[in-house]
Design a protein around this nucleic acid. Structure first.
Lengths: 103, 103
DNA sequence: GCATTATTTGGTTATAATGCCAAATGTAGG
DNA sequence: CCTACATTTGGCATTATAACCAAATAATGC
């Protein structure tokens, strides 16, 4: 694979690599949500949430749609969900290993 | 989902979110590789590569095995590969959108 | 046009990630 | 024990992220 492609890949993955952004992605699986809903959910300043969303939009993970005063965000590639399957597998594997260490 | 779980998830995803680390993971799909092989592949200082590997090990993505002077790393959850399927989908979607903008 | 509301942007500060070099560690062989 | 080799660790400089606040935009209704 082209070396530059790894940079692009990394950018997309990095855009997911933050707890608040994962919370939002998880919420967006249900369907589009406006910034204010996501702000309530995450519990950070709205400006912070807005920047997280801008970053994910730039990476191509979400897209936005303006309706009146509100901006609704949605997942651009719902396959993102399958993404988490493996992350869960790693987490379980980590947990299992810790258990074995304790005995 | 528990709020703390998002932090763990993020940690695992963050451990993948770097071009050099993605190059290594891609190489490890074929099978275990020693640090020197990965260093040649990535082209950074060996100490840098070693730190990338330590970070992925800490996240549970790789495990290591010492054989004489060498340390071999391998993927702990090969499902990581499936991970990239969606990343590719996002990249293609991004590329398509850019095409449409140009016309 | 003006006030109101939802969102974004700019600025600043604090924290984390990255990369290289040099030094330390661990292992094998003579 | 001494040397050689593969890897890791510590230290430091550089750059990138993240969070908040305040101010700027944008859209709506009066």
């Amino acid at each position: 694979m082209d070396r530059r492609a790894y940079g692009e890949r990394a950018k997309i993955i990095k855009a997911l690599a933050h707890p608040s952004r994962l919370i939002m992605v998880d919420a967006l699986v249900e369907g589009e949500k406006c910034v204010c809903e996501l702000t309530d959910l995450v519990g950070s300043d709205m400006s912070t949430v807005s920047k997280h969303l801008a970053l994910m939009k730039e990476a191509g993970i979400v897209e936005d749609r303006k309706v009146g005063l509100q901006v609704f965000y949605s997942l651009r590639c719902p396959c993102i969900v399958s993404f988490f399957g493996c992350v869960e597998a790693v987490m379980k594997s980590n947990a299992k290993e810790k258990m074995e260490l304790v005995g």
